[in-house]
Simulated assay, not measured.
Amino acid sequence: MPQLDTSTWLINILSMLFTLLVIFQLKTLTHQYPYNPQLTSLKQKKQKTPWEMKWTKTYLPLS
């Protein structure tokens, strides 16, 4: 019965871990994270609309 050759297992395992690390780094590199999440406010800012700045007249439909 032949013996199992385990001499290359270490190289295979290390190369697999290195490859997984590189893939993980490349995947996380594409994401953009905020620099400081504590500074972002959760309040919605009120946007000015054009009709709030001037007086508009409402007309009734023609009869």
Results as ranks from 00 to 15, higher is better:
residue 23 I to P: 00
residue 24 F to N: 06
residue 25 Q to L: 10
residue 25 Q to I: 04
residue 26 L to K: 04
residue 26 L to D: 01
residue 27 K to N: 01
residue 27 K to F: 08
residue 27 K to G: 06
residue 27 K to M: 05
residue 27 K to V: 03
residue 27 K to C: 12
residue 29 L to V: 00
residue 29 L to W: 12
residue 30 T to N: 02
residue 33 Y to E: 11
residue 33 Y to D: 07
residue 34 P to A: 15
residue 34 P to K: 13
residue 35 Y to N: 09
residue 35 Y to K: 08
residue 35 Y to W: 03
residue 36 N to A: 13
residue 37 P to F: 02
residue 38 Q to A: 15
residue 38 Q to C: 07
residue 38 Q to P: 02
residue 39 L to Y: 10
residue 39 L to R: 11
residue 39 L to E: 14
residue 40 T to Y: 13
residue 40 T to L: 15
residue 40 T to Q: 15
residue 41 S to C: 07
residue 41 S to M: 04
residue 42 L to E: 01
residue 43 K to Q: 07
residue 43 K to Y: 06
residue 43 K to G: 07
residue 44 Q to D: 05
residue 44 Q to C: 02
residue 44 Q to E: 04
residue 44 Q to S: 07
residue 45 K to Q: 09
residue 45 K to V: 12
residue 45 K to M: 08
residue 45 K to W: 08
residue 46 K to P: 00
residue 47 Q to M: 02
residue 47 Q to I: 05
residue 48 K to W: 09
residue 48 K to V: 01
residue 49 T to K: 14
residue 49 T to N: 07
residue 49 T to H: 08
residue 50 P to I: 05
residue 50 P to S: 06
residue 50 P to Q: 01
residue 51 W to I: 03
residue 51 W to M: 05
residue 52 E to L: 06
residue 52 E to A: 15
residue 52 E to D: 13
residue 52 E to V: 00
residue 53 M to K: 00
residue 53 M to Y: 08
residue 54 K to A: 13
residue 54 K to I: 14
